[in-house]
């Protein structure tokens, strides 16, 4: 296997507060290889956005990386200074945010936002940047790109704006794209189109994608591998088909049980009892144990085996034994 585009090793993010230090991301490790889409799922507050923000170097104070390493194409990027990190953002790592209605500057033409991004990273002339901007809009499916380039964001619908945002994130051809809930704010009717677009563009360019979502359906549709997060920790990591059809962590199993998925052909939806604990109130041991049907004494004491990027699938002492179903 070639070197991964992104390697996250034992990443810890801390937020110091008056009542103690919170760890919204706690010893998380994963890799994403070229052209691969890693889905990151979990309930709201699980630490998905924090992980993405840590990778692109946009953690809001007082949150900070307090441990672990982030490697981009083998080069450590978590200890770069501000200007070095700025050069990586947009150029090596692109980002797509949740709400396309607020992601674009309302006072600047979309063409100007595209060209400024290219000119910040690529050694090209303004004219060339404009030509490439039109091509970029065309690629993300904006009709009549050449005439729409001088429009302002408010002149586009939500779905179209998210296409513009994707064009912006990809315009300097980054090796990695972090898409944080890219369809959550969109109409159901356009969600699938946006996911398909993102998938196609990244496949074509071999871009690695970290696709953050709380929607298992989107993961099943788009991702190659999936990382399940719970209360800042990685609960399970594996190939999408494996995780969806044979979840090993009881939390993943519960998550699957509560999601209608065609591929699983299940009849009834079950909710996991209780809710994810707040960060300041995490129980000792495995954070999931109070809600876990299989919890035993060990789970109340020890947080479970660490998941490293290449070994083990579920951070659980007593993973679900899947009966091998004939396929």
């Amino acid at each position: 296997m070639s070197e991964p585009v992104l390697s996250v090793r034992d990443l810890v993010v801390e937020i110091p507060t008056r009542t103690g230090v919170l760890k919204p991301v706690d010893r998380v490790s994963y890799d994403i290889t070229e052209g691969e889409i890693l889905g990151v799922v979990g309930e709201s507050g699980a630490g998905k956005s924090m992980t993405g923000n840590a990778v692109i170097g946009l953690l809001d104070r007082p949150a900070r990386i307090s441990g672990g390493e982030i490697l981009l194409k083998g080069r450590r990027i978590d200890n770069l200074n501000r200007d070095q990190m700025r050069r990586i953002r947009g150029k090596e790592i692109g980002m797509v945010f949740q709400d396309p209605l607020t992601s674009l500057n309302p006072l600047l033409r979309i063409g100007d936002q595209l060209t400024e991004t290219m000119l910040a990273h690529l050694d090209i002339s303004a004219d060339e940047a404009r030509d490439r901007s039109i091509a970029a809009l065309d690629e993300v499916g904006i009709p009549a790109a050449a005439s729409r380039i001088d429009s302002y964001p408010h002149e586009f619908s939500g779905g179209m704006r998210q296409r513009v945002v994707i064009a912006l994130a990809l315009c300097a051809e980054p090796a990695l794209v972090i898409a944080d809930e890219p369809t959550t704010a969109l109409d159901v009717s356009v969600q699938a189109q946006i996911i398909a677009l993102l998938k196609r563009l990244c496949r074509d360019r071999g871009t690695a994608v970290m696709l953050v979502t709380h929607d298992m359906g989107v993961i099943a549709e788009a991702a190659d591998r999936v990382a399940v997060m719970y209360a800042g920790r990685l609960a399970e990591l594996g190939a999408v088909r494996e995780v969806v059809q044979r979840p090993r962590h009881p939390y993943t199993e519960g998550l699957m049980g509560s999601t209608p998925l065609a591929s699983r052909g299940q009849r009834r939806l079950r909710q996991i009892p209780g809710s994810m604990p707040r960060l300041g109130k995490l129980p000792a041991g495995c954070a999931f144990h109070p809600r876990c049907p299989k919890a035993q004494e060990a789970c109340r004491v020890d947080p479970g085996p660490d998941l490293s990027a290449d070994q083990g699938r579920a951070a659980c002492w007593f993973p679900v034994e899947q009966v091998e179903v004939a396929e």
Binding site: R89, G90, F97, T102, N105, P106, T117, L168
Partner: peptide, 13 residues
């Protein structure tokens, strides 16, 4: 958000 996005695109401060 658009300021965050501008930062995420690597624009100079």
């Amino acid at each position: 958000d658009y300021i965050r996005f501008a930062r995420a695109r690597g624009l100079k401060e």
